[in-house]
Design a protein around this nucleic acid. Structure first.
Lengths: 141, 141
DNA sequence: ATGCAAATGCAAATTATTCGCATTTGGAAT
DNA sequence: ATTCCAAATGCGAATAATTTGCATTTGCAT
């Protein structure tokens, strides 16, 4: 089991109080947190780290793959579409185009979940990431 | 097949030029668009609708379930978590708590997709929405 | 044709995030 | 242990995305 200091070392990052504490919050929380959540979480513990540092450290940790950001799609603000039929997309990380999928791989899974968890499942959001044919080529070249 | 005027009527909404045009863009586009995308899309067609109207109309159409917003989770800015192991959440629409799922229902599906589509799949984001036990009770009462 | 609630535009306010720059600090080299 | 410097931080200002207040306009029921 890795502690915050260990995580920093394995990322090859300088070991600073702020970074240790931000990672600490992420570890304690056990579920996704917002930048503000981290900022105020630290406040409550009597620690103080500026909000810009929170953002910068998160960015850095994402680069190092020690942290992930939920739902990567929304790069330029929220996205909207007609709510006609249920639909998901293949999102290209190269050109950012979105290709609709033929069908939803989760139809049966939702029912299963409702039964298993007692959670009343009403929907889901799913995007698949990767590189489209065009961008796949460009990456190699 | 419904046109923008028809959609507005079935939502019980007043039929205004701006609304027709915003819906028009959503129909034409065939994939998710940002508010700005709609705004400038209209500009290009020589139509003009203020950006605040775009936002207001989208909001309204979402309420009426004629439009959906991609990835509903991020209500208070981006969310971050440790990137230790692959994980998804059941997100409660009542209390906004997030409950981690035991496992990912898409493991095999990704490979299948890579083969089928020629898209180089590198990952996905998935959240399941609904109401947790607590909130399910409260909704009925 | 008329009237009014609802819709719109505009500009200002908020919120989320990023950036520039002066100051501080971790840790490699001594 | 001390020195040094690139890298990290804090602060406040800048930017981007979204919301809101208010005066004006407009659908549509009458």
């Amino acid at each position: 089991m890795e502690d915050s200091k260990g995580r920093l070392k394995s990322c090859g990052l300088k070991n600073t109080r702020q970074r240790r504490e931000i990672i600490g919050i992420l570890e304690q929380s056990g579920r996704p947190v917002s930048a503000e959540g981290i900022f105020f979480g630290l406040r409550e513990q009597g620690e103080t780290v500026s909000l810009s540092t929170v953002y910068r450290v998160l960015e850095l940790l994402i680069e190092k793959k020690a942290v992930r950001r939920l739902s990567t799609v929304e790069e330029c603000g929220a996205l909207f579409e007609l709510d006609d039929k249920h639909r998901h997309y293949l999102v290209c990380l190269g050109c950012h185009r979105m290709f609709p999928l033929d069908d939803c791989p989760l139809k049966s899974y939702e029912k299963e979940l409702t039964d298993k968890t007692g959670f009343d499942v009403t929907g889901h959001s799913l995007e698949i990431y990767g590189y489209c044919r065009d961008c796949r080529g460009k990456r190699k070249g």
